[in-house]
Design a binder for these strands. Structure first.
Lengths: 226, 226, 226, 226
DNA sequence: TATGAATGAGAGTTCATTCAT
DNA sequence: GATGAATGAACTCTCATTCAT
């Protein structure tokens, strides 16, 4: 029913299931029904994010998501009005997953910017290399204007985290660079494309490559390896 | 500097094909027929490379190539057994075009590795940003095993050029780094993804961003901006 | 003029249903429940008739009706076993609305048949052109045998009204024609299709066209314009 | 191949097969190939027109046309870029068929406008009642803007024929009316909707009804039956 | 060789209908 | 009774691929 279908803007809210549940604690039946719905939306988004992260956008299809969930394609249209909306929400989910990881890596820390940036990079590379090797495509494909907009928004949130740390390092004199923007973009590019050359088949080798990559990325903010 | 120029063995079959054609110009009927065929193949590859470079792989279609050449789709199957083979050869052509540009940027020079690397980066960024903004997609897509193999080969040829220069700089003491491989991969990633954030619509701004990017990329080999 | 007003027997089952409800108002629980049900049915039919009249049958969807009523599609199936049944009842409702208007246009009048026919045409054209421009589609679509049957029934009721007036005019010598049936069918056709050529966007022009149309329609019963 | 696919504007030309063949007599292979193509287009349009004429627009589907021709749906896309274009061309075909009939009914005649109009009406009713009882829907459904445009164009051609005759009758003093436009629209409406009430199942009765209808339609131009 | 025709698999989308709760 | 979920069939459209000529 379109009457009750969450509008796109609400999707991110829906994902914060705990909070939503808390605020609707008053009514019973509604919250139960809604919780059910949210669960299903969450399952769909999980499947979507997995598909996007592993196959990339160009090979993403409703059919695959439906099959993975063992429902018909039509069912997806109960929750998302079009493939594009689903993709956008899926990207957001994927991004949120990553952001949760990254926030955990830097929060509540009293250490130097260098140490924290190193930890942030480590965490992000772990996620990208091992969990979402195809996520690069999400930032890479252009076409659908709305998707591009969503990606931009996601990037902005992600960027804030890194930029904050880099600014800190600059303020404290730990970092030196020509252009913060350029250094950050190089970092992002290198991180996102790393699954293409890091040898995941050989975990030992891969871990070493990741270590070297981290050291190299730190050079982008003027931190020279010991 | 032939020392750092990509070596012929790393180039493509087709590249060797044309050289072969040149050297066998003596023989009569066969060579004429073959030359005709090669010309057609070359035309197809040109069109394919253009399409790939500007649209990327995901939006690439046989239909568009055929239309651009004013032939039928069916005709393409006389020269390439499948879309995938055509794509692979097209990627190779695109890469070779770029390599020609890059070779020109470093050859016959007696200057320092830093100066030449800067020139190399400048040239590559010009090509990528202005001519082939979608080329990133070619290095990004995964699945078809053969395409991946071909991309790897192309990257190898490209890599030789950069690696030669970096090795020179290391030998001369101009460069400092943790891992040559990591530094190079970061460079490639940053170059390929740059069209996604450099503001091409605003050429003045874009040129400035490219300059900052080059300075930043040099930090990956331990060259600190003045 | 009750003489020319459509007779109750020609009206619909549902019409009879409501009259039944009125007469059984004595009985308790059952009638209350039933009244509730009838109210809901009436609401559904109202919405359906609106949709049919404005969009026509081909663009009619259960979804739209449900949304308009702020209920689910499923709910509609409590009252109508299928889309087709709903449509049939909706057509009937629409027709009855129109009949109410038309009856009002001719009732309690002592004027000549010509004057009353003119008033009848005026009223009908007002309704069709301004309120239900898509109603033509309802009389036009064929296939589903049941719908066709229902449409026939509706047409019969409508026909009685016009035929009565025409018969009067013939009896009084005001009208002259070859075939009452043919003249009437031409009138109905011309009325129903008029929204397709009358320029509703330009109300002044439309009003003039309607006037000319009425004069022309009167020629079908041998009344020549002054 | 889109390169050779006839653009919409050319379709009507393609249908005048004889003329086209005559003008391309110079080249052989081309004309043979093109003739083949035209034949196929003609077959598709025939099937389309039949479907449209018998089922109406709302129940028209590519699938049915393809099945009738025993080809796949995809094949239709070789000749028409979309359903809408096919429909438009089909409507045109249908209209042209009718126009051929109608032109034959009035051409080269020295008789009075009344006689010729009667013959024109007779012919048109024959076509509409017996051959294309569903054609009404084509003039009735609204939505797709382009289709509406095409229908308008078709109507214009058709209108010219009738209007010419009516103007003649007015000039000669045979006809009298209030508004030519209104009289004509009433005629068209009555003709198009006649299949809905004329009893085709009973041919004898139907023929009589048609005769009465013709007499009645002539009243719209002030011709009173004897 | 090259062409145009044709195919068939698959994509996204819509919608009447069914059903467990 | 009413809801929301789910379905399945139908539809338009795309595109790589095959094939007779």
């Amino acid at each position: 029913m379109s009457r009750v279908r969450a509008r796109p803007e609400e999707w991110s809210v829906l994902m914060r299931a705990s909070r939503t549940a808390a605020t609707t604690r008053g009514s019973k039946t509604v919250s139960r029904v809604e919780r059910k719905r949210e669960e299903r939306v969450a399952r769909i988004l999980d499947a979507t994010a997995d598909e996007l992260g592993s196959k990339g956008l160009s090979r993403f299809s409703l059919e695959d998501v439906a099959e993975r969930l063992d429902v018909t394609k039509g069912s997806l249209y109960h929750y998302f009005p079009s493939r594009e909306e689903l993709v956008m929400a899926g990207i957001e989910t994927l991004a949120r997953r990553i952001m949760v990881e990254l926030n955990a890596a830097v929060e509540g820390s009293e250490e130097s910017a260098t140490v924290r940036l190193r930890r942030l990079l480590t965490r992000q590379l772990d996620v990208v290399v091992w969990d979402y090797p195809a996520s690069i495509e999400l930032f890479t494909l252009r076409d659908p204007a709305d998707v591009e907009g969503k990606v931009k928004a996601v990037r902005a949130g992600h960027d804030a985290l890194f930029r904050g740390l880099v600014d800190e390092g600059l303020a404290s004199g730990e970092f030196h660079l020509t252009s913060t923007a350029a250094s950050l973009e190089c970092m992002y590019s290198s991180i996102n494309m790393s699954p293409l050359w890091i040898e995941r088949d050989n975990p030992t080798r891969a871990r070493q490559q990741i270590q070297e990559l981290i050291d190299t990325l730190l050079m982008l903010v003027g931190v020279v390896p010991a």
